[in-house]
Simulated assay, not measured.
Amino acid sequence: MDTSTLRRTAILACACAWTWASAPALAAPEPLKMVVPFAAGGPADQIARIVSAPLGQVLGRPVIVDNRGGAGGTVGANFVAKAPPDGNTILLSTSSLVLSAGTTPHLPFDARKDLAPVYLLGEVQSMLAVRPSLGVSNLAELTAKARAAKLNYGSTGVGGTMHVGAELYARTAKVEMVHIPYRGAAPALVDLIAGNVDLVNADVPVLKPYIIDGRIKPIVIFDTRRSPLLPDVPTAAAAGMPALQLTNWYGVLVAAGVAPAFRQQLAAALDKVVHLPEVAARLTEAGFSNPGNSAAFQARLDADFNRWIPWLRAANIQTE
């Protein structure tokens, strides 16, 4: 090889090395923000923590949980409804999305038009439980007691699932009860255990530990199926009040303007995540059942809006 050829080869090698060294690194994928419209540590936040990491692995981009609590979940839902429809922000919400639409007269967004369902992570059964010292063992005895003396119940506040569940029982049984709102489920349960509250309606997994150790007494599951977590507790129909039906769903939604292609990609990823053995086991332990695709989620939303909005108005349950 002559001198000129060597010189050209050396120059080319240096140029390639410079180009490689100076070329910008590939940009990391933008994180996906999963907004939870409730405070950290609550049930919705716990579910977000279960699914967020594996979802990020399936999508190939990090998923960051962003807690934006306030106004019964409407603050976070409004944030997502008005977020840029670029596929970088999603909402993990619960049945509170429907209930808020019925109890809050002036929502800053339209839950039916401004948000699009992507995937139904599952639903959790709710149930009625009482303080043991109330002296009742079943729904018939509770109703007799409620008709003889005005009982009270605790909830997380006006329009929440605990409030609606207890009022569903009261209206079905045709009894009047006193509503005692608390700043969260935990203080309501503390007072139930202490005997200051007569009864509560809450998700089965929330009440299960206190039922197992005998600190509260189960009465009825608000569903057509018995709970696999508490199989000895009767269903509403078995207890004589089949109208007591209330399950709390958890699902992922996006702003209505987000591209259908991204929605389909996200739905497929979430379906894969909830069926991963470790995730499925944790969701089952949390009382989850019946996950569903976008169509199933839309059908559930339509049914809930059609059922609960008129019911809440008839019951005059309003936050303002």
Rank of each mutant, 00 (worst) to 15 (best):
D232Q: 11
K82G: 13
A166Q: 05
M241V: 00
E141N: 06
A116W: 00
R307S: 10
F79P: 02
L107I: 12
A314V: 10
R282W: 11
V252H: 01
E278T: 15
P310D: 13
N293V: 07
Y250W: 10
L229R: 02
A23Q: 10
S137V: 15
A267Y: 11
V158A: 04
V63C: 06
A129K: 05
L121Q: 03
P24K: 08
L199R: 06
G159L: 06
P231N: 01
G42A: 09
P231S: 05
A188I: 10
R112P: 01
A280D: 13
V274E: 08
A40Y: 03
G160D: 15
F297Y: 14
P242W: 03
G135N: 04
L6D: 09
G76R: 05
G184W: 11
L266R: 13
G69R: 00
P54C: 07
K272P: 07
G160K: 04
T9F: 05
A116K: 12
Y119F: 15
C14L: 14
M241D: 00
S22P: 02
A256W: 03
G154P: 01
D203R: 01
E176N: 14
R183H: 08
G154H: 03
G165L: 07
V273C: 06
R68F: 01
V65F: 08
R61T: 08
N248V: 12
N88R: 14
L55W: 06
P209F: 03
F297M: 03
T5H: 11
A13Q: 01
V36T: 13
H275W: 05
V254T: 10
L230T: 03
P24R: 10
P132Y: 13
H106P: 00
A83T: 09
W249A: 07
E123Q: 11
I211N: 06
A27S: 12
I64A: 14
N248T: 08
A81T: 02
D271R: 07
G122H: 09
D271W: 05
